[in-house]
Design a protein around this nucleic acid. Structure first.
Lengths: 340, 340
DNA sequence: TTGTATGCGTTATCAG
DNA sequence: CTGATAACGCATACAA
């Protein structure tokens, strides 16, 4: 079963190099021998050994995708990125090696980065200060971030412009007359760890609140429905003046809806809510969420594209893509109505 | 930057083999030289080249995970499998190569199977008759199915016992007095293509309906909320006698809820619904779904475990794990109440 | 305890 | 147009 290029050459009565060239087309091979070789290859179902090829060529035709550890469930948006990255990579005949990073899986990341297992890396869930970025940088391995650090100039990335988007959400709510708005962020641990979207969303929120002279409340919330429920319960109790929420925590939204319903608040009649979410999720919520739909497909595909360019020319200048999709109105926001 | 074992040996003033042995521990190395070597390794941040090692050892320390093509969104259950497989593999110091199969991505699957890129494969979303199983079998590559074909004896797999579980759902509903029950299956295309869970759920449904002398309706439904909505709308219109639904289509459930609400049917007062779903999803629905919670974590981890065994001893007898978790009552089922 | 030599399967270089 | 041969980086049997 272990058929190699030498065996093909022997059976076809040619040299190993001829088989190689017949395969890669990097030098002319007469039609006759080409066909003879092709016949043997198909008969034995031969395929070049990837490890040998990688060793010789110095490239693996594989990219690494570093994801948050699986233990904490991925968000819909993250899943969208994984799916489209895999898809775009397959389209370019690249394989994808998955590496859960963070927590207990440092070894996996280390293997990917330093074992020459991949030609480049796509890094998700980047912190403002991120050790992995430092590691990748010093390793010299080409990489692209889905997300960016606080010094984003000297790396290549695609990202969602949470700052602008949350700001737009607030302005949209303010236009509807809301004066007391809460931002429901991701988990406190994540924000404390310097999670970029969390900080940037907060910055955008603060800015817009100041611009419109509103009263803003900031709350962190873990990534699940239960947390969303208790977070909003608490917000409603502690801040009876609130009439709207802006959020980047898509996983907690169903819980927020539930808390509002339990408090007897109808959306959007009594309370408005807008956010940044994966389009698929926003559309499938009940009611569908007014949100800035993150174009995960485009971003994921672009990340792969940028990585391929970067692998081809590691010295090229860094490129960036900051996505700020428009807000899709789906009916979870309406005119402000003061609460009791 | 291209530091190899020879460079380490040179700087440490030893032979290449000594470095290798110091690394693998497969032969004693004096503490002194060991430390000297270690120092150089850390200084240069050396890590063995994975391709060279794979070429020499004949194994890659990588497993392949074949997933449904990314274009069609993965279900929560599938995502649970991916996450736990990656996690369990990382724990065993194995990397995971992702391969979307089906549709336009045949090349990716072919590369994984035949290019010696992985030591074994975990195959998801298996059909009753599945070409990929045939390919894997003839390739001699160890593999484990999450799911099984119609001839499951001669392969290793873990699976969810949809037949038993849907049967139990029906019995549970019958116990509550329901006499007219619908099964909402996955999409018609999937079922037509011989998708195992779809067929087995239908078998279990038919069996239980016969055993309890009920009236059963079978409906296929695409994997999204919109489809769930229109599917249930249609069911309610065409079968006014229905009072309950059993389903394996977790992605469509929010849509089903919406259709029931729009028809003025309260769950569980006027209408009952039970299903097979990922625990996380069932718990986070509103209302939380009474369902058999598929233990994705255990199944995923077991699949990796079985694959590791199979790689170690490819000749060993095939093992199987059929999971039939108990139904968790979460309040979406209640006594039958005849509809108008 | 350490060093030397060989081969894993490819592709590139050099001859012809 | 084709053949022989030398690397790629590592692990191991063999020799010392």
């Amino acid at each position: 079963m272990r058929v190699n290029i030498g065996e093909i050459a022997r059976r076809a009565g040619v040299a190993r190099s001829t088989v190689s060239y017949a395969l890669t087309g990097k030098r002319p091979v007469s039609e006759e021998t080409r066909q003879r070789i092709q016949a043997v290859i198909e008969e034995l179902n031969y395929r070049p050994n990837a490890a040998a090829r990688a060793l010789k060529e110095g490239r693996t035709r594989t990219i690494g995708l570093v994801i948050p550890p699986a233990s904490q469930r991925l968000t819909d948006m993250q899943l969208g990125f994984v799916a489209t990255v895999v898809d775009a990579a397959a389209r370019a005949d690249l394989d994808v090696l998955l590496s859960p990073s963070g927590g207990e899986h440092e070894r996996s990341f280390e293997r990917v980065v330093t074992g020459r297992r991949v030609d480049g890396v796509i890094l998700m869930e980047i912190r403002l200060e991120d050790d992995r970025v430092t590691r990748l940088r010093q390793s010299g391995l080409p990489f692209v971030g889905i997300g960016r650090t606080s010094h984003p100039e000297d790396m290549t990335w695609v990202d969602v412009d949470y700052e602008t988007l949350i700001s737009q959400c607030v302005h949209h709510l303010a236009d509807l007359g809301h004066r007391n708005i809460a931002l429901v962020n991701r988990s406190a641990e994540l924000v404390a760890a310097g999670y970029g979207p969390g900080h940037r969303a907060q910055a955008g929120f603060t800015r817009a609140v100041a611009q419109r002279d509103l009263h803003g409340v900031h709350a962190c919330c873990a990534d699940d429905a239960q947390a969303g429920l208790s977070c909003v319960e608490r917000l409603l109790a502690e801040h009876p003046e609130l009439t709207a929420i802006a959020t980047i925590n898509e996983t907690a939204i169903t819980g927020m809806y539930r808390a509002l319903a339990q408090a007897g608040l109808a959306v959007p009649k009594d309370f408005s809510i807008a956010g940044v979410a994966a389009q698929h999720l926003a559309e499938n919520l009940d009611p569908p969420l007014t949100s800035a739909d993150v174009p995960t497909i485009e971003l994921g595909a672009r990340a792969v594209e940028l990585l391929i360019q970067r692998i081809a020319d590691p010295g090229s200048t860094h490129r960036h893509l900051l996505a700020a999709p428009p807000i899709s109105l789906r009916g979870t926001t309406g005119p402000a109505k003061p609460r009791a």
